[in-house]
Amino acid sequence: MGQSAEHVAIIMDGNGRWAQQRGLPRLAGHHEGAKRIREIVQACPSVGVKHLTIFAFSTENWKRTQVEVGGLMRLFKRYILREAQDLVNEGVRVRFIGDRLRLDKTLIRLMDELEALTAQNAKVHLTIALNYGGRDEVTRAAQRMAGDVERGKLAAKEVTAEVLARYLDTHSLPDPDLVIRTSGEARISNFLLWQSAYAEYEFIDTLWPDFSAGEFTKLLVNFGSRERRFGAIPA
């Protein structure tokens, strides 16, 4: 492999379709998809991925049925409770990004506890985007920055792209090198809009519950062969 992708972000799409193709309720696909997360997280160290960000629930996903949304929220709680100790043992640090205000208090408490429990880990940095939207994130960042300008903590002339980035949910993370979207859809769905300005993209047909560590590795090998110029002319 040539260049390595230190930070990979994944839009985990296709859980519902995977279930429907098998005559199962959509939530069965989400449960199966949750199993893939562990497999991909465990594969990260061997392929040089230090940061993995996954899109678990978007600000637009509230438009789904109450049954599906409620089932997803219960799944998130169970995932945290079930996986917490293994994440600690495997050296995974977990962070959550997104607007927590709409989430219920029990889920927020579990998220806070998992972040604290894994705070000293550094083998893999797993970021879970939950009630996240790229435009919403930039809007909230701009509001916080404007508040600091009003309070005199920041001068308007000091506002730069670098300063704004410090107000984003991802302020402590590097920008993604590679963004993968499963299930055959070729859109970015409001995911890491600011951070992915120069990311490479892979849109693949595989539904998320069928995505494997082997396919993950192949995508990273392909990434290693790409030339990233960031707007410059090749030497």
Rank of each mutant, 00 (worst) to 15 (best):
G2S: 06
S4C: 02
E6M: 10
E6Q: 14
H7F: 05
M12S: 04
D13S: 03
N15F: 05
G16E: 01
R17V: 06
A19F: 08
Q20K: 15
Q21N: 15
G23F: 02
P25E: 08
L27E: 04
G29N: 01
H31M: 11
E32Q: 13
G33H: 01
R36Q: 13
I37Y: 02
I37T: 04
R38M: 04
C44I: 09
V49Y: 01
L52G: 01
T53Y: 08
T53G: 11
F55R: 03
A56K: 04
F57I: 06
S58A: 08
W62H: 04
K63R: 15
R64F: 04
T65Q: 11
V67M: 15
G70E: 11
L72W: 01
M73K: 11
M73F: 15
I80W: 10
R82V: 02
R82G: 08
Q85V: 11
D86K: 14
L87W: 13
V88F: 15
N89V: 12
E90A: 14
G91C: 02
V92I: 08
V94I: 13
R95W: 06
I97N: 00
I97S: 01
L103Q: 09
L103V: 10
T106A: 11
I108K: 12
I108V: 15
R109D: 12
L110F: 13
E113F: 11
L114D: 07
E115A: 13
Q120E: 14
K123Y: 07
I128D: 11
A129K: 14
G133K: 06
T139I: 08
A141C: 00
Q143W: 10
M145Y: 08
M145L: 15
G147Y: 12
G152Y: 08
G152K: 07
K153D: 13
V159T: 05
A161R: 14
V163T: 13
A165H: 08
A165Q: 09
R166C: 03
Y167T: 09
S172A: 14
P174N: 07
D175Q: 09
D175I: 03
D175G: 04
I180D: 09
R181M: 04
R181W: 03
E185F: 02
I188E: 11
S189W: 10
N190I: 03
F191M: 03
L193H: 12
W194P: 03
D205P: 12
F216T: 01
T217M: 05
T217P: 00
L219K: 08
L220H: 04
V221Y: 05
R226L: 00
R226N: 00
R226K: 06
E227H: 03
R228Q: 02
R228Y: 05
R229L: 07
F230R: 09
G231M: 05
A232Q: 12
